[in-house]
Amino acid sequence: MSDPLIIAGREFRSRLFLGTAGYPNRKIMLDSVAASGSEMVTASIRRISLAGDDESLADLIPKDIHFLPNTAGCQTAKDAILTAELAREALGTNWVKIEVIGDRELLYPDTDELIKATEALVAKGFVVLPYCTEDPVVCRKLADAGAAAVMPLGSLIGSGLGISNPHLIELVCARSPVPVVLDAGIGTASDAALAMELGCSAVLLNTAVSKAQDPVLMAKAMRAGVEGGRAARLAGRIPKIAHAEPSSPQFGLVGT
């Protein structure tokens, strides 16, 4: 079945985007990326180590996989904008995951700064995917500001708590004029499947794979979860009812 995801004119066969941080080693990271089937991975932009002990992520990732650089850790629109511009120069992509954090412990998005950064970067020709709260009004404002997709959180970054508020995610999906990518909080494959069943266009996750006991196997599980959830969404689930509905025929019962 051909069911491509299109964001800003770029077509994806995989609806899973994978983070590259926190794996036990480089080989497991690369094997996990391969097992996930992801066509786009995230990267961060950091000051270079002048001790010369950095690894060059850009030279590690296979050429056919896109980068989605992030602005993780930025606390103002100004810093996020400069980080995005550095990312564009460093990685040769105008795509950016905008993260503007309003609380260092919760890593919770600062919506005012996020909207400001989105408007500014769209004006500079970026394809902006903002990491945001699962608030239908915020998501609409970001889409109005020109975001190519919105990326509401399932729960706090790295928490593995899954989707705290599935009803809100469903509402965001139903009302969003742009694709919705569930970002943050995924703990296991059923969370990824649920995101897709609720109507998300894709899932972005990192820690659930990188910190799993077997990251490569979890990457494979996430791929299956996303594919299963997407198929279920397209298939159309049955309505929930509060009583039993027999599935076997009601005539010809033995003994009657």
């Binding site: 950095d54 060059s56 990312a87």
Partner: peptide
Amino acid sequence: EIVRARQGG
């Protein structure tokens, strides 16, 4: 500022 793309989420 000299920066590099690194692993990230």
